[in-house]
Write a protein that binds this DNA or RNA. Structure first.
Length: 374
RNA sequence: GCGGAAUUGGUGAAGUGGUUAACACACUAGAUUGUGGCUCUAGCAUGCGUGGGUUCGACUCCCACAUUUCGCC
């Protein structure tokens, strides 16, 4: 039942790593992209479609499932896997991101974070212990410590205090955690400051978590430079034999740059959110199918893509579905965009095997940001 | 045939004798990184059925015509 990680190979020229996750007799390779299914569903997709897009681990969210339908209901259903009929690995976020996106600074205290239940107005308190308890009820395979995810624009002093509190929260969560079948990850914070990232990482490593996440990235219009610093300053102090997870990343180039800096797994809402807004990821950049020029373009999104959408449908048809607000359009684009990112990580893995990750990055940039078109 | 009412952008429409014709939808672009599918940003009538007239000035007032619509023969 317990998920295991093994480091297989390191890239010759970068900090890129090839790894292997074993879960219920299935092997999943890293670097890996994980689609997000906040409310126990990858929006618009069935579990079969998620797997057909070559996804392995998927995400769900503590905060959302706590409020609805309630972790007690999911526990009663026999856990998240049974409830949503997904037999691959599931990772849950702790609710820490909702501290960033939903709570006011004044609602954050040493004890935890106060939220207002958006459905009935009840006042709720999410604490490090409560977050772990919920995640244990959900029965996910990888669970996150409850952290504060501060905005990138926060001051050094704020970040430092936040890092220290998040470390205390990590300790409380770890002490509370009781299910050995669930891997518990600590979350490294500290913005783009090396001393804070170092402090955060080393203290977490001292507590000996099952894996380590890098949080507080891609928030608040943070620059890419700062994001990549946060990656480097974090992985530098993390053990090699544990998974490193960049939370909420993301864009294809950020995944590549993350791998170069030693990160193994990534999650992001972008493939499915972009899909719902009519965008498709391609080797030659992001395209907007709402654009009028696609109205009579009967070619697939990508001629070399093996996904269900590209094998069977044209840009013109998908554009029509998006314009008509038919959910099938969002579904086809979600399948394609997820497949694009899983395919990207397949290419990354292949290039690590050949010690050619940097060359792969340069070629990717040339195509993705160049003015080539299919 | 007679009488009444109406005619503003792709659509539904507001509007006043005097700067750049409200608003909404649609449309055209853009944004979206540990998910509300929400949302946000920008653009979009050089013109108010057509032709005359009154006026310093008309989408607004007057006349004719066209079209639509209602009622009566």
């Amino acid at each position: 039942m317990k998920l295991k990680f093994e480091l297989v190979k390191k890239d010759g020229k970068t900090n890129g790593r090839l790894g292997k996750i074993t879960y219920q007799n299935q092997v999943y390779e890293t670097p890996m992209f994980m689609p997000v299914g906040t409310q126990a569903t990858v929006k618009t997709l069935s579990p079969e479609e998620v797997k057909d897009a070559h996804a392995g681990i998927i995400l769900a969210n503590t905060y959302h499932l706590w409020l609805r339908p309630g972790d007690d209901i999911i526990k009663k259903a026999g856990g998240l896997h049974k409830f949503m009929n997904y037999n691959g690995p599931i990772l849950t976020d702790s609710g820490g991101f909702q501290v960033f996106s939903l709570a006011n600074p004044k609602d954050i205290s040493e004890e935890g974070v106060k939220f207002k239940n958006q459905y009935n107005g009840d006042e709720l308190l999410l604490t490090p212990e409560k977050s772990i308890e919920i995640q244990e009820n959900l029965g996910s395979d990888i669970i996150m410590s409850f952290d504060e995810c501060p905005p990138a624009s926060a001051s050094y002093d704020y970040l430092k205090n936040s890092v220290l509190r998040t470390l205390r929260w990590a300790k409380r969560g770890k002490d509370f955690h009781s299910n050995p079948d669930q891997l518990l990850f600590g979350i490294v914070q500290g913005g783009a400051h090396e001393d804070l990232r170092k402090l955060s990482a080393l203290k977490l490593v001292e507590m000996d978590f099952d894996g380590y996440s890098i949080g507080g990235v891609a928030n608040d219009h943070e620059s890419k430079e700062d994001m990549y610093k946060a990656f480097s300053y974090s992985t530098k102090y993390l053990p090699e034999n544990k998974l490193r997870y960049a939370m909420g990343i993301g864009e294809p180039i950020d995944i590549i740059e993350g791998v170069i800096r030693g990160i193994d797994i990534f999650d992001c809402v972008s493939p499915t959110r972009l899909a719902r807004h009519g965008h498709a990821l391609t080797k030659y950049g992001k395209i907007n199918l709402k654009n009028a020029k696609y109205k009579d373009d009967f070619s697939p999104i990508s001629s070399d893509c093996d996904c269900y959408a590209c094998q069977n449908y044209s840009k013109a048809y998908i554009k029509h579905l998006i314009n008509a607000e038919e959910t099938f359009g969002a579904r086809l684009l979600s399948i394609h965009n997820i497949r694009f990112l899983t395919s990207l990580t397949e290419n990354i893995r292949e290039s690590i095997k050949n010690d050619s990750l940097l060359e792969y990055r340069d070629e990717f940039i040339k195509n993705y940001y160049g003015d080539n078109h299919e």
